[in-house]
Design a protein around this nucleic acid. Structure first.
Lengths: 220, 220
DNA sequence: AGAATAGTGTCTGTCAGACAGTATCGC
DNA sequence: GCGATACTGTCTGACAGACACTATTCT
């Protein structure tokens, strides 16, 4: 079979890994220790390795595992970025994924890698980032916001058990605006995605609240 | 700069080109005249040519121009399909786009190319298609349906001037279910995407109806 | 007149937003 | 009691579904 007479582009996967904490919505950034774009902040990413990766999503999971040390439950494609100029190494395809990390896994990020790794609030993203990663973050944040705006619950950002108050705060952090408690809870009443558990009694809060967990069949 | 020690995957763009006519929603299929998958029906597609294409979307537009002979107004990425087995030539990335062709451009498709080209109703897609194109069509149709279900008007499928009845029939063809005329028109009343024109008087229909056109700033 | 399409009016249920009110904890 | 959070109740306006009704053309 004749090989096509075509140059092959560079294929990279980048991941916008999100978490929500008391600071709001954060994305994980990596300070690049190698060329190109050395010293600039970027999304975690890496070259596709066809001999190892089953597909692009597997490549993204491998990159997160190898470079950040996390196995994420939720990971999904956003869109591609491509062209001759976005990477100085040549014509490239950057496939952007976005992933969600539960709040109680935030500190499981490996900090001792060669690269400097940091959670950065999406409200404080610097203009100057490597490649087109600033645009990529915008695209990933918008996709996340659109989903939550369409009433999909970001349960992958929650720990295994959580209160409705915590869930509402998470949604508010993503959307960047307050939600009405009564409206929020009324919608959740009939949701098949939430399962009520027993009562919380930790003295941290004032009045104890019911705990919930995500239903097994729930899809983000 | 050292070249990465990685095999390069094959990069292909495929396009699900849709139109709506009296038969309902159709997608354009091509009977492959070359290996691989010779003789099977497939979506129009082609190899990325980095030396010619500005990005993947440009590649998709070029493929439509060269293989089908159409310049489409609307074209947008759906998602990627990738892996070692989906194309017999090796590890490949297939980027799926979907495009919309106005009803009055349907017959502008070039019929005299080397490949056999045909509009096929989405209700009558054969199981056996080249590569994973059956799955790709499912993904593209679902994205189109989701958009219309979310009340986005598929104005790119309409001719420059059209009636509300024709627009409703187009939406019904996409969704595969009837819509209530009163509800449909009530929603359209305040829409900034539609601009009313003068009266239609062609004797084809019974009572003449107002003509509309898409607003310039409208986004699908 | 009858068929066919264009276009309007109205009733009803559902749901979102807004906001007030009650409940239960720690201190 | 007081502060704080959990949770509920209610009013109102917007809108969707359903369906009936009128209007205007052609044959």
């Amino acid at each position: 079979m004749p090989k096509p007479k075509t140059l092959y582009p560079l294929v990279v996967v980048d991941i916008a890994l999100f978490c929500v904490d008391d600071n709001g919505l954060n994305v994980l950034l990596v300070k690049r220790s190698n060329e190109p774009a050395q010293g600039l902040w970027s999304l975690p990413g890496g070259l596709l390795q066809p001999e190892r990766d089953r597909n692009l999503e597997s490549a993204a999971r491998r990159v997160l595992r190898e470079k950040i040390g996390v196995d994420v439950r939720y990971l999904s494609e956003v869109r591609s970025f491509s062209g001759p100029a976005r990477d100085p190494r040549g014509w490239s395809i950057g496939m952007l994924f976005f992933a969600l990390l539960p709040r109680d896994h935030i500190h499981a990020i490996v900090k001792d890698s060669v690269d400097q790794v940091e959670w950065v609030s999406v409200r404080r993203i610097a203009r100057a980032m490597a490649f087109d990663h600033s645009e990529q973050i915008d695209a990933a944040v918008q996709l996340l916001r659109d989903k939550v705006e369409r009433r999909v619950l970001p349960l992958h950002l929650m720990p295994a058990e959580f209160t409705l108050g915590a869930l509402q705060k998470t949604c508010e952090a993503i959307l960047g605006r307050p939600l009405d408690k009564s409206v929020f809870r009324r919608r959740l009443k009939g949701s098949p995605d939430l399962i009520a558990l027993r009562v919380e009694n930790t003295g941290s809060a004032q009045r104890p609240s019911l705990l919930y967990r995500a239903s097994d069949g729930f899809q983000f």
